[in-house]
Design a protein around this nucleic acid. Structure first.
Length: 630
DNA sequence: CAGTGAGCGAGCTTCCGCTTGACTT
């Protein structure tokens, strides 16, 4: 009943929220529908790849998506023109391809592409429609098929050798390996003792300050042995302290780029203590729109699954206005700051930023739930800061002589806050030194020698693991959070406080995979794969050829691993606490358990489920899969 | 909650990446 004129043109996007936004821009001229992601995929309960026939994939409608397809078809029947506007990346191209297959109407179907949801970008895209890029689709198919071949071949190997329900894959197995290797480093770590010498000093002006020994004779001091420390301590104790030189330097600190999915998850974990899952849940709601008293639902942030730091012209203009008005001209760079999106990113969406930067966190306080607000504030501040001037620090260093020893004291003063006016980073606030002069004599208040030990590398947290995976190009914005939950659900890893700790099961699985498929379960594998996918997308390589090359090697490794049936007894990373022999997994009447491979000489057994920490993580309590259908 | 270590074979489990809802105890 809105208008008698029915729209004749159809646009199909992935996200329903995006559909809503777009149809607002286009004011009824177009009907805009959402596919809600992929609509077709390989079947769940079988390989679905015909290895004998050039890896021909079998695609089926994803269960639950029948309704979506029906609606898209219905809309397509009425439309004179159909624009497939799924995301401008590999997956989006494949989605467009699958939609085109399902709705038919080849003569009326066009593909359009835009990287930001602004009126301008949208109109430009509509004026320049293209066709589906089958080369890009092929790159996606290669990725999909490879992941299927790997996952659905490796997992059954684990069922046979270790236990049902286990899993392995190109991404999760690397994540697990990172955690397990780190654990090995920690176990192998031997702390080294070292000593430090510090002097508490006082000059002609307060306050007292600390200086640390950094040179002795011509020798730079790194880590002192106890003997060296004793010797220097006794020598220096009675000597006079003199400021030999004062160095002053200006240091600029630049703001960080606006958030991507991965950096948002890291910061929300560190600053707010949110898990990646919680962060994504809150961000999704900020994106879809929250009810704001007196205004109705408002979408507060741009799309939250992105690997790009790109920002639209409009948003840059708005944030520059805000910075000038709120902080003053001196905080505004002469032109907008351009950040470089990391190499290999798909760059389908903008950075994560407020949709309207004028909507300040203060203005929302109390109007949206607390956690949503905290996350919004984080996003808002990071974005505003990213377009502000660097902070300027004046760092001052005293070089202090005491006999043959040189001590150093460093202080830093904030000269100009720049972006730190809105977004505080850690460190900041270096201590301040008193205003003293060169050649000034100092009074020694206290000389201290302290014992220290080197510490092992820290375990991964959810945040540091995601950071590492992203750096290596493993996983995608839509999967970072689920990667962590997968390896936890499988019982490979448990959370202990913030740390991710491998279980005996996880360590054994990882060892089996690393021994039998070293190249596959390596961070470099995905990087190489991506290079190949790029070639396929460029049309320089056939996808079947690429998969064939991989599979020829992989299938041999599979055979060998299958025959080996993995001599776990020899290399299990878990050692028997009584006799030192490797521990292996055995199945008994009451389930599986960890047993010494020295049986029957050594009868040591241990429970398999989280021996430490007393976590629960029961094996098969969760079964949230709904099943039925072909 | 302690205790579990054979082999046979039915039928089950599983990947990564895109996106939002949704039931049957």
């Amino acid at each position: 009943m809105a208008s008698t004129k029915k729209p004749k043109k159809l646009i199909i996007v992935e996200s329903p929220t995006k559909a809503k936004t777009i149809s607002k821009y286009l004011k009824g001229e177009y009907e805009v529908k959402a596919s809600m992601g992929h609509i077709k995929d390989l079947p769940v309960n079988r390989m679905g790849v015909d290895i004998e026939h050039d890896f021909e994939p079998e695609y089926v409608v994803i269960k639950g998506k029948e309704k979506v397809i029906k609606e898209l078809k219905k809309a397509a029947d009425k439309a004179q023109e159909i624009y497939l506007a799924s995301d401008p990346d590999r997956e989006g191209e494949a989605i467009a391809w699958h939609i085109a297959q399902e709705i038919g109407k080849d003569d009326k179907v066009k593909r359009i592409i835009f990287h930001e949801i602004t009126e301008k970008a949208l109109k430009e895209a509509l004026e320049n429609p293209t066709d589906i890029d089958i080369k890009k689709v092929n790159a996606q198919q290669a990725r999909r098929i490879l992941d299927r071949l790997v996952g659905y071949s490796l997992s059954p190997l684990l069922w046979r050798r270790i236990d049902k329900g286990l899993s392995a894959g190109r991404v999760q197995s690397v994540a697990l390996k990172l955690i397990c290797e780190r654990e090995k480093e920690i176990e192998a770590f031997v702390p080294q003792e070292y000593w430090k010498i510090e002097a508490l000093l006082e000059g002609s002006a307060p306050p007292q300050f600390k200086a640390i020994l950094f040179k002795y004779g011509n020798q730079k001091i790194e880590k002192l042995s106890k003997e060296e420390a004793d010797k220097i301590y006794n020598e220096v104790k009675g000597s006079s302290f003199l400021i030999e030189k004062i160095e002053s330097k200006e240091r600029k600190k630049k703001p960080k780029p606006p958030f991507t999915t991965s950096t948002l998850q890291q910061e929300a974990f560190q600053k707010l203590g949110f898990s990646a899952q919680k962060t994504m849940f809150l961000a999704q709601q900020l994106y879809e729109g929250l009810e704001i008293p007196g205004e109705g639902p408002v979408g507060l942030i741009t799309y939250m699954r992105t690997d790009s730091v790109r920002v639209s012209e409009e948003a840059l203009k708005a944030v520059r206005t805000l910075i000038k008005e709120r902080f003053g001209k001196e905080y505004l760079p002469s032109k907008a700051v351009q950040y470089k999106t990391k190499e290999g990113a798909q760059d389908a969406h903008e950075a994560i930023r407020p949709t309207d930067v004028a909507r300040t966190p203060e203005s929302l306080r109390g109007k949206i739930p607390e956690d949503h607000w905290k996350l919004y504030q984080l996003i808002w501040q990071r974005f505003v800061a990213s377009q502000m001037k660097p902070a300027v620090y004046l760092t001052t260093t005293f070089h202090i002589r005491a006999d043959k020893a040189i001590f150093k004291a460093t202080g830093s003063v904030l000269k100009f806050p720049g972006f730190t006016a809105v977004y505080k980073d850690e460190e900041e606030e270096g201590k301040q030194l008193p205003p003293l002069k060169e050649q000034e004599e100092l009074k020694l208040i206290k000389l201290e020698k302290t014992q220290h030990f080197t510490s092992p590398p820290p375990r991964y947290t959810e945040a540091s693991l995601i950071k590492k995976l992203e750096e290596e190009g493993i996983g995608r914005p839509s999967t970072y959070a689920t990667i962590v939950s997968t390896i936890i659900d499988r019982g490979y890893v448990v959370r202990e406080k913030k740390a991710l700790v491998p279980t005996p099961l996880g360590r054994i699985v990882s060892e089996v995979l690393s021994r039998n498929f070293p190249k596959l379960i390596d961070t470099s594998f995905t990087a190489n794969m991506e290079e190949d996918l790029d070639r396929i997308a460029q049309g320089d390589r056939q996808w079947q050829e690429s998969i064939r090359e991989f599979y020829d090697v992989f299938s041999k490794e599979l055979d060998r691993a299958g025959k080996n049936l993995l001599k776990l007894e020899e290399f299990s990373p878990i050692k028997c606490p009584k006799c030192g022999k490797p521990m292996v997994i055995k199945k008994g009447r009451y389930g599986k358990f960890l047993a010494c491979s020295g049986y029957p000489a050594c009868k040591t057994v241990e429970s398999l489920v989280s021996k430490k920490g007393g976590n629960r993580s029961g094996r098969k309590n969760k079964n949230k899969r709904h099943q039925k259908n072909t």
